[in-house]
Amino acid sequence: AIERGSKVKILRKESYWYGDVGTVASIDKSGIIYPVIVRFNKVNYNGFSGSAGGLNTNNFAEHELEVV
């Protein structure tokens, strides 16, 4: 089962992080479509409006993740 702290591989082909491994930061139990927040070591794009980097978290559905 996917739980907080799990290392997961991203299976969503259109994702910037496809094939990468991230760490589960949290799981939303409220029934939303993409409840699993995954944190990565790298950012997906340069930040804007003065922020240092881009996003390094993204929401995924459990079926888009594979525990490694």
Rank of each mutant, 00 (worst) to 15 (best):
H63W: 13
E66W: 08
S49V: 12
V36C: 04
G47T: 07
P35C: 14
A52N: 12
T57F: 13
D20L: 14
T57W: 15
G5T: 02
F60L: 02
N59E: 07
K7M: 12
Y34C: 11
N46G: 09
Y34A: 07
E64N: 02
R4H: 07
N44W: 15
L65N: 01
V24K: 00
V38A: 00
E3W: 10
K29F: 11
G22R: 04
S30P: 04
N56R: 10
T57M: 13
V36E: 00
V36I: 14
G19I: 07
F40N: 00
V38F: 01
E14F: 08
L65A: 00
L65F: 03
G31H: 11
Y18Q: 01
V36M: 04
R4I: 14
Y34H: 11
K13F: 12
S51T: 13
I27N: 02
A61Y: 06
Y16T: 04
P35D: 09
E3T: 14
V67F: 05
A1R: 13
S15T: 02
N56C: 15
V24P: 00
G31S: 13
I37E: 09
Y16N: 04
E62P: 10
V68C: 10
K9R: 14
V68W: 08
I32A: 12
A25N: 05
F48S: 14
E62V: 13
N59Y: 10
I10G: 01
N56H: 08
A61P: 02
A25Y: 12
E66S: 06
V43F: 14
E64M: 03
D28K: 05
H63K: 06
A1M: 12
A61F: 06
E14H: 07
I27P: 01
K9E: 01
L11K: 04
S6N: 07
G54E: 09
G19H: 05
Y45E: 15
E62I: 14
I27G: 00
T23P: 01
G53L: 10
G53H: 10
N46S: 08
N58H: 14
R39F: 14
S26G: 12
R4F: 09
E14K: 06
S6Q: 10
K42G: 09
D20P: 02
G22S: 03
K13R: 12
N59F: 08
V43L: 08
N59L: 05
Y34T: 05
S6D: 09
S15V: 03
S26V: 06
V24T: 00
V21R: 03
G47W: 06
A1D: 07
N41F: 11
D20G: 06
G53V: 10
Y18D: 00
R12Q: 03
I10E: 00
E64H: 02
R12V: 04
G19C: 13
T23M: 07
R12L: 05
S6G: 04
G19Y: 04
Y16D: 05
K29C: 13
R39A: 08
S51F: 09
E3R: 14
L65E: 00
V68D: 03
G47D: 15
K42D: 09
K7P: 04
K7N: 06
S30K: 07
N59G: 10
S6F: 13
E14V: 06
D28C: 12
S49W: 11
S15M: 02
V67A: 05
T57Q: 10
R39W: 13
G53T: 12
E66C: 09
K29D: 10
I2L: 10
V43D: 13
F48P: 14
N58T: 09
T57C: 15
E3F: 13
K7G: 02
G22C: 07
S26R: 11
E62Y: 15
G50E: 14
E14P: 05
I27S: 01
D28M: 10
I2T: 02
A61D: 04
V8T: 02
E3C: 15
V68P: 02
T57I: 08
P35W: 15
E62D: 06
P35V: 15
L11T: 03
H63S: 10
G5K: 02
R39L: 10
F60E: 00
S26L: 08
V36Q: 00
G31K: 09
S51C: 15
L11S: 01
G47H: 07
N59H: 09
I32P: 08
V36K: 00
G19R: 05
Y45N: 15
S49P: 10
E66T: 06
R39G: 04
S6A: 13
K9T: 04
H63A: 07
A25P: 01
Y45S: 15
S49K: 06
K29M: 11
R12A: 04
N46L: 10
P35H: 11
E62F: 15
V67E: 04
I32S: 14
F48T: 14
L65M: 03
V8M: 01
T23Y: 08
G53R: 04
G5L: 03
V24A: 01
Y45C: 15
E3N: 10
N41Y: 09
G5D: 04
R4L: 14
G50F: 07
N46M: 10
E62K: 08
N41T: 12
Y45D: 15
E62R: 10
I27W: 05
K7Q: 12
H63V: 09
A25H: 09
E66R: 07
V8A: 01
G31P: 05
E66L: 10
V67C: 04
L11Y: 03
F40M: 02
V21L: 07
N56V: 10
G53K: 05
F60N: 01
G50C: 15
S15Y: 04
V67D: 03
E3D: 07
I37N: 06
N56Y: 13
E62S: 08
R4W: 08
R39I: 13
I33L: 13
L55P: 07
F48N: 13
G31I: 08
V21I: 12
N46V: 07
V36L: 04
K29G: 09
G19E: 05
Y34S: 06
K13C: 11
I27C: 05
